[in-house]
Design a protein around this nucleic acid. Structure first.
Lengths: 213, 213
DNA sequence: GCTCGCACGGCACATATGTTCTGTTCGGAA
DNA sequence: TTCCGAACAGAACATATGTGCCGTGCGAGC
């Protein structure tokens, strides 16, 4: 952890964590004073200044409770993104709606992901996988896949594509082969789909998979 | 979404989201007033009261910036837990330290997970998987497994166990067979380990696996 | 038209809260 | 010892901020 902090500073930092976890808003200087048994507000202020210098927090002057926790390297932390869960998908079955749904509000559910998990990307959505047709990609029934919205991709990437003619969306590995496209299921027992390049529209690229046991 | 809200209330709610995302602390009433082009603080207060009645926010009286976003059903939202990343593990290689490390602060890194992902459990830790010795459990090199700390488990559960004699920790499926224990690797090409029941100490049960692509 | 409640405007007020100033204590360097 | 800066105490101060009060416009219902 951090060894460049005094006991009091460590105690303040821990109190900050707990207080924010409890209230979802930061404590005032006097809250910290009471919570850490500190004798004076100026001592709190003094140590907060040190913590800010060392990159553990950020403060806005003149603003009450304006303390933001950083990760010790001066970077922001604890932030989640509500990722829309657009529906279920099996390799072959459609997503409920061709997802222009994103910008609208036409999804029922969201899951919270951290920036770590989305890689800081903003155009992400999630799908719940049904069936075990993607077993070779280590994705099982019930898993959630997180996709980055895109309309292009490289060969071999795992993408959700919309088949215009069939009007359905499916999760496959994408390979361009001249004028046509090979969509490879991630299950050795299933055969690839071949279709004209202009029949497919890439919807998103898989960036993360999450499984609960 | 919500259709029981006035335009102004919706605007306030959205401003709250953006402000908190920007600053990590909630806005004051006057911040909202400016941000939403509202003419008076009392109008903001009035609408905040309505929002609180309808379960979209929670407020602490007399406390500045004490606005907590709820999910519309009166439940809290957006909360992450810093889960300690204790080290790397391969089916067979040890965790750096036999994890009493947990309560101390002897880990280098943490990952942020949402309560959704930890299932609300508090005693969780994470390990990064090395090698593909757990491929049959759909866990690959580089994946992160999240474990719930426990010292008991049922047959067939995927657990981290500490082998006292060998002084190493490994990730296996656990089967009790009379006086001995079978530790089954999750790779068909690898053989199970048989050892005395009192030689194994269960460290944790796998609850989630996360893969980034 | 009249009443009444809802949403709003304006403003003063009380207090919650960050800041600052003056000292004090204490340990190490000179 | 003396000097000096880090850390702390205590209190006053300035302002940031929530709250309450009084009034207005307006549409619904009678």
């Amino acid at each position: 952890m951090a060894d460049d902090l005094s006991l009091k500073q460590r105690s303040i930092l821990q109190f900050l964590e707990e207080f924010i976890a409890d209230h979802d808003y930061p404590p005032s200087i006097r809250d910290i004073q009471n919570g850490c048994d500190i004798s004076s507000t100026s001592v709190v202020d003094y140590n907060l200044k040190r913590l800010e210098e060392k990159g553990y927090i950020r403060r806005d002057r003149e603003v009450s409770r304006a303390i933001e926790l950083l990760n010790g390297q001066g970077e922001r932390r604890r932030r989640t993104i509500a990722v829309p869960l657009l529906g279920k998908i099996a390799a072959g079955r459609p997503i409920p709606t061709p997802p222009d749904t994103l910008s609208a509000g036409g999804y029922e559910d969201t899951i919270e992901l951290t920036e770590e998990q989305t890689g800081g990307r903003s155009n992400v959505f999630a799908l719940r996988v049904e069936g075990n047709s993607m077993i070779d990609a280590l994705i099982n029934d019930g898993d959630i896949v997180v996709l980055e919205q895109t309309d292009t991709c490289d060969d071999g990437e795992m993408v959700a594509v919309w088949l215009k003619g069939e009007n359905e969306t499916t999760l496959k590995k994408f390979f361009r082969e001249g004028e046509r496209v090979r969509l490879q299921p991630m299950n050795a027992t299933m055969s690839p789909i071949y279709t004209a390049a202009d029949n497919v529209a890439v919807q998103g690229r898989v960036v993360t998979a999450i499984r609960s046991l």
